[in-house]
Design a protein around this nucleic acid. Sequence first.
RNA 1: GGGGACGUAGUUCAGUUGGUUAGAAUGCUGCCCUGUCACGGCAGAGGUCGCGGGUUCGAGCCCCGUCGUCCCCGCCA
Length: 605
Amino acid sequence: MQRTHTCGELRAGDAGKDVVLMGWVNRRRDHGNLIFLDLRDRSGVTQIVLDKDISPEGHAKAEQVRPEYVVAAKGTLRRRDTSALNPKMPTGEVELVANELSVLNDSRVPPFSPAEDAIANEEVRLQYRYLDLRRPEMQANFALRHRVALAIRNYLSAQGFLEIETPFMTRSTPEGARDYLVPSRVHPAHFYALPQSPQLFKQILMISGFDRYFQIVRCFRDEDLRADRQPEFTQIDLEMTFPQQETIFAVVEGFLKAAFHEAGVDLVGGFPRMSFDEAIRLYGIDKPDMRLPAMTDVRSVISPQTAGTLKTTAALPVIAVRIPNVGELSRKERDDLRLLYPQKVATQKIRALDDFKRLEKSFPEEMAKVRTATGAQEGDLLVLVVADGETVPEQRVVGKRLPPRDRELFEAAGQVRLALAQQFASRHRAFEKKGTADDYKFLWVTDFPMFEWDEDGKTWIAAHHPFTSPDEDDLKAGRLTSDPGAVRALAYDIVLNGTELGSGSIRIHQRAVQSEIFRALGMTDEEAKERFGFFLEALTYGTPPHGGIALGLDRIAMILAGAPSLREVIAFPKTAKAIDLMVDAPTPVSDTQMRELHIRPVLKG
RNA sequence: GGGGACGUAGUUCAGUUGGUUAGAAUGCUGCCCUGUCACGGCAGAGGUCGCGGGUUCGAGCCCCGUCGUCCCCGCCA
């Protein structure tokens, strides 16, 4: 028997056709001499009628059928009687009157039903992933992910990008995230590493003259998981020669528009831009969620005396955090908030003043100015974040960057802002989707610092990665050695609704500059040569200026699907402890396998 | 590595101050039912209260440990 249609496609216009449907039994309704089966496949559900008068054999088989059995039904499609229409389903105007039913496979009683709306807990879902994936919501997520990836692939291909594969077994790079390692059988005590990203390969492809490269590619990072972080994840990785930042922004905006179009969202106009410093000042974070208003530094409207009363000082920012439409907080709500505020608020002598009404009572004129400065409307929640500071600590200001104590304060305020936003989401409703392009607030964050000071290692580390080109002016001014903290990088992030979607940069294409950066990162020339010798050499053979970016496909799919976690858009994800509950990985391996690989476990005592 | 939440029937959950035989819904099994679509009716089965230890006359409930899932911090160039 050959399937003629899928379970979601038949309509009133198909009435009278002889059809064969195959699929899973979603539900069964037994009325004695009349049995209804809802037959499900990925396209939808169609009702099958087994009438004892029409097909005694088919009816007899239907009596034995249970949920999740796989069956084939052959018969005539009938327009339903007007009294029996079901407007809730797309196929609700028709039903298949079966004269033949065959059970293609039976099913044990599943631990949970794909037909149920209530979903089982994560552990059970992951263990029986094939049942979970049968749920229409999951099927829709993966169909969406497919369409998004395809749209991006088509767009980039049309823009002249070539998809070129790069190795999964490559060499370990100790910087950055922890590597997943693969022991070599042929070379004792030697290891391959799974790539954290194809960074160097794609740069080599530029040196190779491919001009425009992309890849939708798996990357691996052995770090602890989060709702939006899996140890293996998929990047839309691209690189191009002779780009300005603008060139790359245009490509990314182009493929994101194509991708979102597939999800029924038409984005218009270019994405806004913001420098890293501005992001810190206005949002206290390098990935601002633009769905809620920015913070306001209101220190200029606070008198020195009032600053003193608030136990801060006029020299430090007073940051007003505004969350619209939250209304007054009760005493209990303010107490509960203490637990949500970042640890910094406690440990670094930073305080969140969340009883604005009381502040208004004490300082009516100044707080009226705060209201004006923040643009607060009636019913908006205002919280002031201040630093304890009778004396201003000495702040060494490097370049145009924020003084460190200011930055700490802005970042703490940013965390308070996010905590409030999360806690009162049901009141401000800014996170609720309306089904329009407005639901998606994109932002380019630019002018990242080149280096960040690592307090533990007492060294500068690359804020993006060590192949990022520094700003030419900073380079010419010799700041690489004189003032590393002031050096700007030609690096940029693409942010959506407070989630970092991707990160890229214009790369270094001159060997001398690359060597200088390695040195600035505290690497000797010998170390640099040992780790990146092949790359430094490649740079000497006519390397074109180049740059690129990589975006997380999983995160894009997650946001478009409105899913709370990456696990909803990855078919076989891992748990928070990086375990695959379905196949049960990782596992111990035999001594034989280990001996062959020249490895021996060292178990902690 | 640290903090938090959760773990009771196949599933989702309730379980009071520590006190008789641990409940509900749903699913499952059997019987009945020709217009249901979350079909309905009747009857029934189903429990290592995650695991180990402790306190107690008595523990699902209290204490200690441990395992698992989730969320967060650290970490993620």
